[in-house]
């Protein structure tokens, strides 16, 4: 039985009329529940690959199957992103004028959950990331590490099968960064979530089950 959650074949993506090839024939398989780190220098194509898996961008060529969805054929990918993917960015990208709790509720709009269900789910997740005391605070009133924990809670809002983290500790000091990584590792081991993390840092990459090196838009063996 095929237990791959992600299957990518000969994936190509170019920018500026294919003058710059960000992805140049990527072949990749990731198993369900696996923790994979993607490393590579700046401009190697690792973030583009992450965006392809998260259906934020479409490839020029090749095929990409994620959680049973053929992303090259699907037109409206918003439902897929909402149900299957949780994004964590280097910068938390929280909405500044609403509370921490409301930020966590944002992905749940349009999913059929009632206001009460959304609230309860947000409170549960904020408790999980250790912020139950600060649910009414605005993101601007939190530290960098706390904001990133809110971003983790937001990524988990719709119980995604895959978490995509693009340098989640990139803007944090080492102590806070370790705390965030511990939380992500815990999430992966306890919830069996597939975790794919882009990083520059080899020591962080070594925490993963498997490390994939991307160079010039290709996976290096």
């Amino acid at each position: 039985m095929n237990d791959n959650i992600i299957e990518i074949k000969n994936l190509e993506k170019g920018f500026e009329n294919s003058k710059i090839m960000a992805l140049n024939g990527i072949d990749l398989e990731i198993k369900k529940g696996e923790f994979v780190s993607i490393i590579g220098p700046s401009g190697s194509g690792k973030s583009t690959l992450l965006n392809m898996i998260g259906a934020l961008d479409k490839p020029d060529k090749g095929s990409i199957m994620v959680a049973g969805n053929n992303l090259t054929q699907k037109k409206d990918l918003s439902n897929f992103r909402s149900q299957e993917i949780g994004f964590i960015f280097q910068l938390h990208n929280l909405i500044p004028n609403i509370s921490v709790q409301e930020n966590v509720e944002i992905p749940m709009y349009g999913t059929g959950r009632s206001g009460k269900e959304m609230r309860e789910r947000a409170l549960k997740l904020l408790d999980y990331v250790g912020l139950s005391e600060k649910i009414k605070r605005k993101p601007t009133e939190l530290s960098g590490g706390e904001r990133q924990r809110v971003a983790i809670a937001r990524a988990l809002a719709n119980e995604p099968s895959i978490i995509l983290a693009d340098e989640p500790t990139g803007s944090l000091d080492s102590k806070t960064g370790k705390m965030i990584l511990d939380r992500l590792s815990d999430l992966h081991s306890k919830e069996n979530v597939t975790l794919i993390m882009v990083t520059h840092d080899m020591s962080i990459a070594s925490l993963a089950d498997r490390t994939i090196k991307v160079l010039d838009g290709k996976v290096q063996n």
Binding site: F80, S82, F87, P107, G110
Partner: peptide, 10 residues
């Protein structure tokens, strides 16, 4: 961009 990433429809 984030709203789209978390699954908001156009």
């Amino acid at each position: 961009g984030v709203l789209k990433a978390v699954g908001w429809k156009n």
